[in-house]
Simulated scan of single mutants.
Amino acid sequence: MSDQADLESLISYVLNYRSPISSIKKALIMGLAIGLRVGNVRKMSANHLKIDENGEFYLHFPKDENKTKANGDEYLGLPREVGEWLLSFNLKGSQLFFGNTKGKPLSDGTLSNALGDYCSEKLGDNVCLVFHSFRKIASTFCHENMPQNGLIPYEVERTLFHAIHGVAGVYNKSTNIAMTRKVITWWFNYLESLGLAL
């Protein structure tokens, strides 16, 4: 999906998604807005949300919770609106942001199946999105708009927490938070301009 009209259609679908489990819609919004892996969204708790000394929000996922463990801990700087939205959930400790009705993680299948109706309505029977597709969509739009957004490929790859080897793979926490906040803020603002709302 690299067409703006298709992206607007997807945003509308996510915002109008109906389910007895309200956290499914919120998880879809988070996945689209941030481009996190499904496992991180499913298991994201209040413990992962941090606020630095300047009042800026970021997420911290220890390396043992990440698919790409060789990259170490994952730090993602968040736009203030997203951080405040998560803070408004009023959670403590290990409480999940996007849990099911029993407070357990939503399944990967539940989140991907939530996109099934969108696929059949908009994309036809031969093409379908899964939750992981949000990462591909974010990557595509970030890369295609580089002349306008001032981003570079390394920043986008680091934000998506892809494996980066050698000297380029070494980074410090504060640099990574600032870099990922830059990418995610551009992406979130772009989605907002097309109708996304928290």
Rank of each mutant, 00 (worst) to 15 (best):
M1E: 14
D3S: 07
D3E: 06
Q4T: 00
Q4M: 02
D6S: 04
E8H: 12
E8M: 08
E8T: 02
E8R: 15
S9V: 06
S9Q: 10
L10C: 05
I11D: 00
I11E: 06
I11R: 00
V14C: 03
L15D: 06
N16M: 01
S19F: 08
P20Q: 11
S22Q: 15
S23C: 12
S23Y: 12
K25A: 13
L28I: 03
G31K: 10
G35R: 08
R37N: 11
R37F: 14
G39V: 04
N40Q: 14
K43I: 04
M44S: 01
M44N: 00
S45M: 14
N47E: 08
K50Y: 13
D52W: 03
N54W: 08
Y58I: 00
L59K: 00
H60N: 14
F61Q: 15
D64R: 03
E65L: 09
T68M: 06
K69L: 05
A70T: 12
D73V: 08
Y75M: 05
L78Q: 01
R80F: 14
E81L: 15
G83C: 13
W85S: 15
L87T: 01
N90V: 02
L91Y: 11
Q95G: 07
F98Q: 08
F98T: 01
P105L: 11
N113Q: 13
G116P: 05
D117R: 11
Y118F: 14
Y118Q: 02
Y118E: 10
E121S: 10
G124D: 00
D125N: 08
N126K: 00
N126S: 03
L129E: 09
R135I: 10
I137L: 14
M146N: 09
M146A: 03
M146F: 03
P147L: 03
G150F: 03
I152T: 04
I152C: 05
I152L: 00
P153Y: 02
E157W: 06
T159Y: 08
T159H: 03
A168P: 01
G169F: 11
V170K: 08
N172V: 01
N172H: 02
N172I: 02
S174C: 00
A178E: 11
M179K: 09
T180Q: 08
V183H: 12
W186Q: 04
W187G: 13
W187N: 00
F188M: 11
F188R: 14
N189C: 06
N189Q: 03
L191T: 09
E192Y: 02
E192G: 04
S193F: 14
L194N: 06
G195C: 14
A197I: 05
A197Y: 02
